[in-house]
Every structure is written in C-alpha cells, then in structure tokens.
Design a protein around this nucleic acid. Structure first.
Lengths: 197, 197
DNA sequence: GTCTATAGAGTGATAGAC
DNA sequence: GTCTATCACTCTATAGAC
C-alpha cells in the first residue's frame, strides 16, 4: 500500500466505471481503499476534486499520446491512420478512465467542466485539421469536417464501452478494423443513390 | 395539463437528460410537474419504475421505426441505407430519450436491465444480419460483423450527444453524411498500407 | 495520516386526511 | 388524485483526538 493517494484514485476509477460517479459514495471508495471515509479528505478536497483529478490526467495523457503518434507519420493519410490507431489503443488500454471521461462530465463544477471540455476541444481540433488537410490535398473526399471528426472520435471512443480485455480480438486487431473503416469513409469511394426512408 | 402521467414522464426525460438520473430527485420531478413529490407515487411505483417506462417505450418505438424503414427497401445496400437513415433520424428527433437510453441503464433493477438490453440486442441483430448478407453478396467487404455493427450504431447514436435542434445542419443533412460515411466504410474501397504507431 | 463521532442537509418512499 | 407530514436512511463533509 505504497501510495495511498494513488490507491484512492485507482479504486475510484474502478467504482465510477462500474457504478457511476453519483451512485458511488465516499464510503464505497473508503471501503475499497481499506480506510475510513474521513481519511479520504486528507488526500482529496472533495468527491468532485477526485473526479476532476481522474479526468484531467486522462485528458492530458490522451493528448500527449496523440502528439507522439502524429510525430512519427508523414503524409496526411498516414498521420490520420496513426491518430486513429493511437486514439483506439489509448481508449482500450485505459478503458475505465476513458469511459468515465465520456460519461461523468456532469459531475464537475462549472469551472472544472470548462477546463476539461477545453482540453477535449483542443484534441478534436487536431483531428479536424487532419480531415481538412486531407480534403484540400484530395486524399479525402470533401466531407463535413466537424461531423466527421465527431464521428471518428465517438466511434473509437465507443470501444471503451464494450471492449473486454480478454475478448475475441486484440487491441491491435480492433484498431485495424476501425482504421480501415474510417479511412474508407473519409475517401468515400464508389457511392450509389441514397435511401428514401 | 391533460394527462398528468404523461407530464411527469416528459419532465423526467428533460431532467434525466440535463442532470442525469441519479442527480435528479423526485422533488425535482414533482417541482417541474407542478405537484408535490408524494403525488408522483400515485402514477409511478418508484423512481426506477419511471426510468424503466421511459427506456421501454423508447426501445419499442425504435424497433418499430426500424422495421418500417426496412419494409420499404429492396436490396441489401438500400436496406442498410434505410436502416442507418431511420436510426439517425430517430435518435436526433427524440434526442433526450435516446441519450438516456444509452447512459442510464445502470439505474435499472437487474430484471429491468435484462429486459432493456434484450431489446437492444434484438435491434443490433437486425444490423448484423444486414452486414452479413451484404458481405455474402459481395456488396460489402468481408468485415467483422459484430465490431462493425457496434461501430455503425454508436456512430449514429452519438448524434444524440451533440445534436442541437436549431443547429447548422438539418436532420436529413446529418443522416446523408452518416449514410455515405458508413456505406463507404462497409465497402472498403481503395485502401493503402496501415499505420505504424 | 488515520481514526471516531457527528453535523446538517437531502433522499426515496409511505401514511393517512381530504 | 393530490395534499401535508414524516419515517428511516444515506449522503458529503468537518471537528478534533491520537
């Protein structure tokens, strides 16, 4: 039980993922951490403070990972492939935190909410720039940048909802599928007539 | 104030969407409905019962809508296009209920949870059958059916997260974008080498 | 750093009058 | 069908001992 503060955070991530932020009590977290609930407040100012720490570190690590992935690629398509792959991997490897980051924003104070959504917006911008560049270079079709960026991100993020660590497919196999699906969608080859319903 | 029971349900949908199920109290719902909180229990047995009614009617209507859309189409690609379009439309037009249906399942009792996820699984099966048929007929590429069905559904469902009724694009314009993106992804035309990150 | 004890407020739900 | 009143409980957070 080296670092109690880290233990509390880790237990909270497990519980927020399984039960949700509002359904998890300080008592639950204390029980899981092997201490009394009052002791939580020595390490974190409040339950909301704990949530904010989780979301902040997740978003910061996510952005760092993306930038590392992009640094390796050359050319817009390769860079988009690397971005998608990095995004998928990060979300599957740190499934619980990412699930929380996408579902528990309402638990934050107004100020902390702005802080996290600003980080998210900056992250989205990187993808939007890639789509725009690809469209200008003729690598991708002339698609709606905003909608497509949301589509790409939610698609990959959704993995954090259903992924099972010891399931049928490995992280890299799932990343392959998403990468090809998304690049195909961005290129928009051979399309026919739309539906009527 | 014709039907109080319907008013309570409608107010609950608004509040569950805005604040979340656990963060919404019976008092909040009563206040929004213009009655005292005890009166809620004349119409619904419990807060959970209210949530279940919302989710059940949403899922039933969703499945009905999909079947109507599919009845019109001929050919696998046209049927998939119709299915995607119907799914997107339903989620954007009934945004709040669908958002709740995708985020508040944890509020249900074990029995009700099974009931709703069973309806969801049946709905997903329709999409999985379409993907499989398309792959067999050579209309779609030989893709992973389960992953792709999750991808398609979460993609369209995500619209319920960010859609703004009076925003830049109409429901049909958004449906067009998703439809083309998904069909392109299912066909997987002209792909190059994968990324390395 | 962790404990016991408790404050203070809010919760879902019920009883019974009207 | 809606009300007032209240029960029994849980919650976050704090005070102060050790």
């Amino acid at each position: 039980m080296a670092d109690r503060k880290a233990t509390i955070k880790s237990v909270s991530i497990d519980l927020f993922f399984k039960k949700g932020y509002f359904a998890t009590s300080i008592s639950d977290i204390a029980g899981g951490s092997g201490i009394q609930k009052a002791s939580i407040y020595y390490h974190y100012a409040s339950k909301e403070d704990l949530l904010f720490h989780i979301l902040k570190s997740t978003m910061d690590d996510l952005t760092t990972t993306l930038k590392q992935c992009l640094a390796k690629g050359t050319g817009t398509e390769q860079r988009m492939r690397a971005a998608v792959r990095g995004h998928v991997r990060f979300h599957l490897e740190r499934q619980k935190e990412n699930f929380i980051a996408n579902s528990e924003l309402r638990g934050l104070t107004a100020e902390h909410y702005r802080s996290i959504t600003q980080k998210r917006d900056e992250y989205e911008l990187i993808f939007q720039d890639l789509i725009r560049q690809g469209a200008e270079q003729g690598v991708f079709a002339d698609v709606d940048v905003k909608i497509l960026s949301y589509a790409i991100l939610t698609l990959c993020t959704a993995g954090a909802t259903w992924y099972k660590p010891n399931g049928r497919l490995t992280v890299d196999e799932i990343a392959d599928i998403y990468e090809n699906f998304i690049i195909s969608g961005l290129k928009q080859g051979n399309l026919n007539t739309p539906a009527s319903c």
